[in-house]
Each structure stands twice: as structure tokens, then as C-alpha cells.
């Protein structure tokens, strides 16, 4: 009856996505994972600014109207504007040069969307590790670590600074900032690289939402934290590092720490 979890990794957007299915129908698991992967690859073809031939690149060069592009392009660009409003400007996809860069939203959005395909595998429980963001579904809870902000690369198996529980009231966690990509989040108000926090983690029930708010708090600082809390999200920010290697952090009252 007990069957080992099926664990596999697919790559898209130059990032690894780990899928773990428990109690899945073996015949359904493989096509479900393939569909999940294909959805991510498709999102990359739509949104990559690294690729000159993505729909977004074409659109930004004025070669393609939103009406001519897949509806999801409009959906995500509109979501960017929605989050700009909701976060009081903390999340602002407009770069200084005027180019809309929805990258801060795309990964979470794409994973949340692609994950629908995993339901076809009829797994009892499943988890997606999306290059630092985690999404779970099913009945049981899981202990998820919050990475040391100084660890670069895949934090799997490294010492963590906090442990939270996902699978009950919270099913998604996203983390922004830290050591991975230097200077990739800018403060929409000052136009400078954001240096509010070493790392920002947001727990919620929707990966795209948690991801967007984590990015917004990293970019907009303390003012955005209050707005996230009003929406029922829970937040932990790493504010500094001490000489002894410990970290100063702040967490909201309902942050699901089980450390």
C-alpha cells in the first residue's frame, strides 16, 4: 500500500523544478509531469526577456499587440499593474527605462498555473520546489526550511535559519532577495537597488501571490509589510547579519514557524 514518493526534477526558465508526488497513479504521473513541464517551457517562450523571439520581447519592440499575443501576456501585464496598486508601488514592473519586466511575477504565476496539471496524477499529496519557492497540496503537513541568506545556489540540504509548516492554513512560501542574484530588485520609489532586507519570505495560499509580495517587500521595504499583513499573508524579513553569523529577523504574528 505504501509506495515510495515519486520525485523528479524538470528544468525551465534556467531553473530547476522539483516535483514530489505521493500515492500517485503510476500511469498518470508521467504525463502529468510532462504537462507541468510543458506549461513552464511555454511560459518561458511567452515571457523571457532573455530571448529575442519571446512574445514579450516582440511586444516590447512594438511588433506584436496584446490582441495578437496569447491572452496570458495581457493577463500577467495586468496582474503587474494590479500588484503595483495593491502594494502601494512596492511591486512595480516598470523599469527605469520604461520597459515592463514582469519577471518578478512570472515564475510564481507560471508554477501556480502549471501545477494544475499535477492534479491529473491523482496524487494523495504533492509538493513542487520551484527554485526556492515551495507549493504543497494534499492532506499532510510538511516542514519547510527558510534558507540562510548567505547560501548561494540550491539551498537543499544546507543549514536553515527557520522552519515553517506548510499544508494546513498555508500552502505556499516564496522567498526573495539574499545571496542568489545580486542587485536584481530595485526600489520603485528611489529607483535604486533595494537594500531594505537581506531576505524576505512570504507564506500564503497562492504561490503567485506569495512570490509577488515577497518581491514587493524586498523592493519597497517596511511600508509594504503592513499591506501584506492586511491581506492575510505572513511575513518574515531578515534585517541584518551579526558578527557571530546569526541573523536579525522579524516575523509577523501568524508566521507559521515550528522551529
Amino acid at each position: 500500500m505504501t509506495q515510495a514518493p515519486l520525485r523528479t526534477t524538470v528544468h525551465a526558465m534556467a531553473m530547476p523544478f522539483v516535483i514530489e508526488l505521493e500515492g500517485a497513479d503510476p500511469a498518470e504521473a508521467e504525463p502529468a509531469i510532462a504537462a507541468f513541464h510543458a506549461a513552464l517551457v511555454w511560459a518561458d517562450e511567452l515571457f523571457s526577456l532573455w530571448k529575442d523571439d519571446s512574445y514579450l520581447s516582440h511586444h516590447l519592440r512594438g511588433e506584436l499587440t496584446l490582441d495578437e499575443a496569447p491572452a496570458e501576456l495581457r493577463e500577467v501585464l495586468e496582474a503587474c499593474e494590479w500588484y503595483r496598486e495593491a502594494t502601494g508601488g512596492g511591486f512595480d514592473a516598470r523599469r527605469k527605462d520604461g520597459v515592463i519586466d514582469p519577471t518578478g511575477l512570472v515564475k510564481g504565476w507560471a508554477v501556480a498555473r502549471a501545477s494544475r496539471h499535477l492534479r491529473a496524477a491523482r496524487a494523495r499529496d504533492w509538493m513542487v520546489g520551484a527554485s526556492g519557492d515551495v507549493l504543497v497540496a494534499g492532506g499532510r503537513t510538511r516542514r519547510i526550511g527558510i534558507a540562510n541568506p548567505r547560501v548561494s545556489g540550491d539551498p537543499t540540504g544546507t543549514a536553515v535559519i527557520d522552519v515553517i509548516e506548510l499544508g494546513g492554513a498555508f500552502t505556499a512560501v516564496a522567498t526573495s532577495g539574499g545571496a542568489q542574484v545580486v542587485d536584481h530588485i530595485w526600489d520603485p520609489v528611489t529607483g535604486e537597488v533595494a537594500r531594505h532586507y537581506l531576505q524576505v519570505s512570504v507564506a500564503g495560499t497562492d504561490l503567485a501571490d506569495a512570490d509577488a509580495w515577497a518581491t514587493a517587500i524586498a523592493g519597497g521595504g517596511p511600508a509594504v509589510v503592513g499591506r501584506a499583513l492586511e491581506r492575510g499573508l505572513e511575513v518574515m524579513v531578515v534585517t541584518g547579519e551579526r558578527h557571530d553569523g546569526t541573523f536579525d529577523a522579524q516575523s509577523s504574528p501568524g508566521w507559521p514557524s515550528v522551529r
Partner: peptide, 26 residues
């Protein structure tokens, strides 16, 4: 409302780790 904490990196038993996005080693 925020609770101040001092955190130390430790090896805990976890099933996944949330951190900033990273590029596939591959």
C-alpha cells in the same frame, strides 16, 4: 506587530527549503 528574532543557521529536518531563486546547476 512584528516579532524580533535572532536566528542561527542550523541543520533541521525539513522536506524542502525556500530561498531566493537560483539557476539550475545543469
Amino acid at each position: 506587530e512584528l516579532r524580533t528574532r535572532v536566528l542561527e543557521a542550523q541543520t533541521w529536518d525539513v522536506e524542502a527549503v525556500s530561498g531566493a531563486s537560483f539557476t539550475s546547476p545543469a
